[in-house]
Design a protein around this nucleic acid. Structure first.
Lengths: 138, 138
DNA sequence: TCCTAATTGCAACTGAGCTGCATTTAGCAC
DNA sequence: GTGCTAAATGCAGCTCAGTTGCAATTAGGA
């Protein structure tokens, strides 16, 4: 289990319960963003069945603490990935098979300044997702 | 009513029914992306009440024909805007009041080539959305 | 060990969006 | 204009993601 996450939880006055520990292990072991339902399913397969509501509540809490990233690929459900030790990045998803690949790049920083000047918004975040056809499906 | 839309519908063998005409008028008169529920509500206020299902089905069809653009701001529902006569563009939304502003820029073309080379995907589209605080709410 | 705030599980709910089916309608051929 | 047929509509009921209220449980500091 990643130390920095445990510390952040402690600092925020959060308890390290069994369900929470099991959920964090699933999240950390997932190489790509994962849905709440998938987390729930994997927990059921293992011997750590926890309620789906608990999954949702924990994901929301972890997101609020900035420990997990929501990834919205417009599939009708959200995905989540742990932030720890990962560069800020984006995703590309295949229209055919749903395959998701990380993109280790983000050219948006300069653009953000431009948009802030243009709109007078204080920009807090951005989302950049590509869709297309993967080598198998194209 | 925009001619090019009517032509596209005819070419695709789609009928120009009263509900469809009313929906198109609402869409065309909306300066910013609008949700299905909002379309439905405006139609009810006017004298052209149509079923919410009809709204969904028409939006899906128009999207398939490439006549409207889906805008996913992760609000828990989709928004739609007519493409006709509009530059390809992106959006910024205020976390406070939900205000949406068009951004008349898209620096993603060069990036797309890079991502295609890097991932071997055939890229079909991309989504770029900013969130932040508008001048009133910041 | 005790205590309390945090957390959990359950059940019931909300809200977006979809499906099946019988009925209606646009728009073409005559 | 009339008749015809495929397309479109409205209704009812459904699915699926995610949330809420509440009583019961638990982590972890005093």
């Amino acid at each position: 289990m990643v130390e920095s996450i445990l510390e952040s939880l402690k600092t925020a006055g959060k308890k390290l319960t069994k369900p929470r520990k099991a959920l964090l292990e699933i999240l950390e072991s997932s190489p790509l963003p994962i849905t709440a339902a998938e987390v729930y399913a994997r927990l059921r397969k293992g011997r750590h069945a926890i309620d789906l509501v608990t999954v949702y509540r924990n994901l929301a809490m972890l997101q609020e603490l900035g420990l997990v990233n929501p990834v919205g690929l417009h599939e009708g459900q959200m995905r989540y990935e742990v932030c720890h030790g990962r560069e800020h990045h984006h995703h590309i998803q295949c229209r055919g098979c749903g395959l998701i690949v990380d993109l280790l790049l983000c050219p948006i920083k300069k653009l953000t300044d431009l948009v802030e000047r243009q709109t007078k918004f204080a920009i807090e975040g951005h989302a950049l997702e590509f869709v297309g056809w993967c080598p198998q499906c194209r």
